[in-house]
Design a protein around this nucleic acid. Sequence first.
DNA 1: ATCGGCTCGCGCAA
DNA 2: TGCGCGAAGCCGAT
Length: 454
Amino acid sequence: MAINQSRIETLNQNPVQSGDYILYWMQSAQRSEYNHALELAISKANQHKQPLVVYFGLTDDFPQANLRHYQFMLEGLKEVAVQLKERRIKFILKLNSPPTGAIKLAQAASLVVTDRGYLRLEKKWRSEVAAKINCPLLQVETNVVVPVAEASDKQEYAAYTLRKKIKGKREDYIRPIEQLEVEQSSLDLEISGIDLRDIETIIDKLDINRSVSPVKKFKGGYSQAKELLAEFIAAKLADYPDLSADPTVDCLSHLSPYLHFGQISPVEIAREIKQAASPGEEEFLEQLIVRRELAINFVHYNQNYDGPLEKILPDWAVETLNEHESDKREYIYSEAELEQAKTHAPYWNAAQEEMVLTGTMHGYLRMYWGKKILEWTAKPETAFQLALKLNNKYQLDGRDANSFAGVAWCFGKHDRAWAERGIFGKVRYMNASGLERKFEIDRYLAKINQLKKD
DNA sequence: ATCGGCTCGCGCAA
DNA sequence: TGCGCGAAGCCGAT
């Protein structure tokens, strides 16, 4: 089945060159399965009777990334290298800035294909490559179900406005992808890259922040993602509507980090979920498609997604937070106190510890956690920056569109006004009593205590 | 245990 | 122009 045209965009006006190969510059879709960019690149290679080279640029100064993220990403890339080799495609990993390497390799390419990213740096890299190469640059949108501009032409106000727009289009995009075979192998081409069989050696060479250790619980890569997905469908999906909000039980897919690095496709996940024909289907697809793509809509149409808040939030939220900026705070914690989980609030401390230890935090607690940072910090803008910083440092899915949208939600983004109160103004308030009322939250404390002992 | 009120603005129906 | 309703809210009254 052909790739939907609305996934594809030409980023420059260059004619096809008579080069030695077609190049796929892989960046946001780090996988061989269900990768529309890769399949388009293969079809272009076959059409021009050329081999396909896949390149990935590994830069050690990616903003806010640390050892935890590099380890997870390289575990995934190691698997990509094996899978591409089986498909007779050469995978070249270079230790350089992604666009720099792409521009170099494009000199001998007839045409370049890349995947789409929505953050500022990802967009900047692509326009730089588009401008500096002589051949065409085709961008393929493969990390979403519904392409961002196809879903909506503007920044959406809330989930309900996007949901309506996605509803009718969703099914057209949840469809299988035809996995093509290359007619010409590129394995014999003499282009050198880093050997991915030994990722420890690669990591040793990188000049990166090593203060955050890799997590034991989750290993990167497509096969790990598939295992988690299968386990989720078999054991959790049916209970998802009832239990997904409860931090004391594990009724989550844990796929967010894999989606973040493009190690698995949301289209493949959606297909498997639908095939399961489970009562949890709609609730899960709501998270996977509506909520996730609302976050992508946000960062795509609002390039101030990391602040300041006045450029992110609706007017009512900006006004109300401003009005309450000098309200007295009962507790004000420093960055270090928050980071080290030294507050008076046990559930908050436990959530922070979960994030530091495991690279993830239960979704419900992410909201409570962010709300309390707003409450315990001198100014909303400082709170927002601090919450983002901690989130992006420790979460395996940090820096994702979901990170920016999720943290902004705690300050009123994609939400509505509520009864006015101190500090929060009309921004939705959450407290520990809510956790106690809804869940047997002490079990969460026990779980985290156990985690600390292991 | 359950319920209404709090409060804003989008987007559809009219 | 009116109106329904929205990521998981809280709080006080019954």
